[in-house]
Write a protein that binds this DNA or RNA. Structure first.
Length: 570
DNA sequence: GCCGTTTTCGGCCCGACTGTTTTCAGTCG
């Protein structure tokens, strides 16, 4: 059972209640709970098993009971009876831009529309005409919305979104009469994937800024164009919003549009309790603006330490800011080396020397070459003989004196299905850093994978557990694994958890990073680079580490070489 | 339905834009 399924069920209850229209606030509770579950770092089943569901923000007694029922039976009675009363695929219809609960209800009551198919038929037959509140433009909007929903345009990976944002900002600077432009939203929070881009602009010529924005290369559609807010959709499907904000409100605007929504709601509640009011134009006492030009000022005025965007998920950061216990987050400059990288000896594209040279340019103190092992045939993995040759080769490179940086001898050894390692112990013992990873039989049972991993980590030659959950974002879910047991085993054998920095992996996720550190484990932030270019992915690992509240002292590869080697020695 | 430095009841973020309206409801973020 996946968190996504639980979130979808809660969200459906929320939308159905909204369509029903009896209560204004109940639907919001379900939607809040659904968001909370969706963004949970941990498997909801594990939390339920501990009886701690109500400790999740937005989940109280009633919703906890419903989740438990869903986990054990696959059903929620309240959802079943709602579906009976309103037999409409509300999630499907709600996903159409421009369609909300009121429109769904109207179309169901008047035309019997229950899903995208019947909506399309009703449109084609012209049956929407004459309905109260639906004119020709709304009809067109719904028709276009169906196309968008069908095209399945979803979320973009952070690196792609960031690259687009950089291009937009550069262009706006040259033609948009822009004094200042920032990207806010989930991009600024460095989420793994983002659904749209939010820009904040300070300008001396609003008209010029708006025209520059709607005239950007690749704009397919202008969704809204007002005095301060403009929305466009690119041909790629990505939606971009721009808000024009005056200088005295820029910090408030940045804070507001960075979100997350739950962080903001929490912040506004604190403001209200202090007799203040917070909106995108500032922090107000009555009509008087108390703060607004800087984010720092707003947090300070609310009695909070400054909260970095990566932490703004309403997952404890506001309490920590109140009590001055926020983490001192890691940054890219804390990283002294990279402990996981491939070469063309296995499935990488560059030679060992090319990878080493590129790592040296980064002024690392050390770089670890860790190719795959023999059972990963598709990656041309190394057997004992080839690995021994590599050891000798790296010794020679180190003694050549060509680099000040130390090249570490490593391997990414496969964890076989019985928990044994795909390389003999006496060869592993000759290496500096051994990362053990799962690359096969990912659909085995939770018990099988957990047992297999715990066995592997008990091998005294293993230093790091690579990409611990095996997920590929937007592509492949995590394999089922009991991380609590794995963390326990890793703690007793002094094995670190990898934070794999590849933007499609980012494994461990933020919630699991926090739990790993809480369990007393060290984190190794590695690129797993398969090419020189991928060494740049370290920054995405750092973003993710920040989202996981990681401090430099939690991380293995912030240590100088000597300390690193001492730390992993067993 | 959730939640608590106005705590177990009574609130619940709030502003911008659009379309179909003659003053506002619905959607969105």
């Amino acid at each position: 059972m996946r968190n996504k399924d639980v979130a979808a069920a809660l969200s459906e209850i929320g939308i159905l209640l909204e369509v029903e229209g009896k209560d204004k606030f109940k639907p919001k509770s379900y939607e809040r709970a659904a968001r909370s579950v969706e963004n949970l770092g941990e498997d909801i089943e594990a939390i339920a098993a501990r009886g701690e569901l109500t400790s999740v923000p937005g989940i109280g007694e009633a919703i906890a009971k419903k989740i438990e029922s869903f986990l054990s039976t696959g059903h929620i009675e309240a959802l079943d009876s709602l579906r009976e009363r309103i037999p409409v695929k509300v999630a499907e219809l709600d996903a159409i831009p421009g369609m909300g609960p009121k429109t769904i209800k109207l179309l169901y009551d008047e035309l019997g529309v229950t899903d995208i198919e019947s909506l399309e038929t009703a449109l084609k037959e012209g049956r929407l005409k004459g309905l109260k509140g639906i004119g020709p433009k709304t009809e067109t909007e719904i028709a276009n919305g169906i196309g968008l929903a069908r095209s399945g345009i979803g979320r973009s990976f952070l690196p792609d979104a960031l690259a687009t944002a950089e291009q937009v900002m550069a262009h706006m600077h040259t033609v948009g009469h822009v004094r200042r432009i920032e990207v806010a939203g989930s991009v600024r929070r460095r989420k793994e994937t983002v659904g749209d881009l939010d820009f904040l602009v300070e300008t001396d010529d609003e008209g010029a800024a708006v025209n520059a924005f709607v005239g950007l290369e690749g704009v397919a559609d202008v969704l809204a164009k007002g005095a301060t807010k403009t929305s466009v959709r690119l041909r790629s499907g990505l939606q971009m919003d721009m808000r024009v904000i005056p200088a005295e409100s820029f910090g408030a605007g940045l804070q507001y549009f960075t979100g997350s929504i739950d962080h903001n709601v929490h912040l506004r509640t604190i403001a209200l309790k202090k007799g203040l009011e917070l909106n995108e134009y500032g922090l107000f006492k009555g009509k008087k603006q108390v703060e607004g030009d800087s984010e720092e000022g707003i947090y300070r005025a609310l009695g909070l330490d400054y909260i970095p965007p990566e932490l703004r998920e309403d997952s404890g950061e506001i309490d920590a800011a109140l009590t001055h216990t926020l983490p001192k987050l890691i940054s890219l400059s804390d990283i002294r080396g990279d402990l996981h990288g491939h070469t063309n000896e296995s499935d990488g594209t560059n030679t060992t020397e090319e990878m080493v040279e590129a790592a040296a340019v980064k002024k690392y103190d050390y770089y670890c070459i860790s190719d795959h092992t023999k059972s990963l045939k598709i990656a041309h993995g190394l057997d004992e003989k080839r690995l021994l040759n590599r050891i000798q080769e790296i010794d020679e490179l180190n003694s050549s004196g060509r680099w000040r940086m130390r090249i570490l001898k490593g391997v990414e050894v496969d964890i076989l299905s019985n928990g044994e390692l795909d390389m003999s112990d006496n060869v592993l013992a000759q290496l500096d850093v051994v990362t053990a990873s799962v690359h096969s039989r990912m659909k085995d049972s939770k018990d099988a994978i957990t047992e297999r991993v715990c066995t592997a980590l008990s091998n005294r030659n293993v230093h790091i557990f690579g990409h611990p959950t095996g997920r590929l974002i937007l592509e492949r879910p995590e394999y089922e694994i009991d991380l609590d047991r794995v963390f326990e085993a890793a703690k007793s054998s002094r094995v670190a958890m990898e934070l794999n920095s590849h933007p499609h992996r980012l494994d461990l996720n933020p919630g699991n990073l926090r739990r790993a550190v809480k369990a007393g484990l060290k984190i190794a932030i590695n690129t797993d680079a398969h090419s020189v270019l991928e060494l740049e992915n370290m920054k995405f690992g750092i973003f993710q580490a920040c989202r996981g509240w990681i401090e430099p002292r939690n991380v293995l590869n912030t240590l100088p070489l000597k300390d690193l080697l001492a730390a992993i020695r067993k």
